[in-house]
Amino acid sequence: MSTNIWVWIAALLTLSVYSFLYKDNPIYRFAEYLFIGTSVGYSIGFLYWNAFIPRIVRPVQAGDYIVLIPTFIGLLFFARFTRKWTWLVRYPIAISLGIGAGISIPLTIQAGIFRQLQATMVGDFTISNIIMVVGVICTLFYFFFSLEQKGVVGGVAKTGIWYIMIAFGAIFGYTVMARIALFVSRVQFLLHDWLGIIK
């Protein structure tokens, strides 16, 4: 069994969180609030030492006053907290949106539409490629709402639904794996690091 106090704290907090599986209780809520508090505290401290100090304070100390311009624009976000100056928040939002859209729109269209379309069209006539192309067309047809989904159109759309259902099944399977993995990891910690039962 571990003699490390931090391992004990982590183990007891793990058990506190899992106590929720029986029913909601104050010990669980204590662990939950502690987690939120430490996460926020860590993030604030981390941002102060890794963004504010090296990116603003040190450059200003070195005479690089240009960083004060983006700093000032960023500080305008806090205008949201006052009734009188709340309109000022539009400026940093507008700048962020403008830069973000300018950078991302051309590249996103290229990456997410053109290259993906190309990958759907170009290829050998293998079974997997045919299944993929049929799947893409049928699924897109399901989301085409200007034709009543009857007859041939309905059949194609129904095939699209089948593809979507299979995708949901795959996503669910992967989700089960992910959630169980989180639990297995905690049990490994309890049995190995805390109790020392397994190697």
């Binding site: 990456a111 993906q116 990958a119 993929m132 795959a170 992967y174 989700t175 794996m177 992910a178 993995a181």
Partner: peptide, 26 residues
Amino acid sequence: ITGVIAPEIYPWLQSGQISGMLGGIK
């Protein structure tokens, strides 16, 4: 990638925009 979003990666793998993937704990 985590298991929850691993299925989203397959189209990117197929197009060659992602060259390899580790899906979840497996």
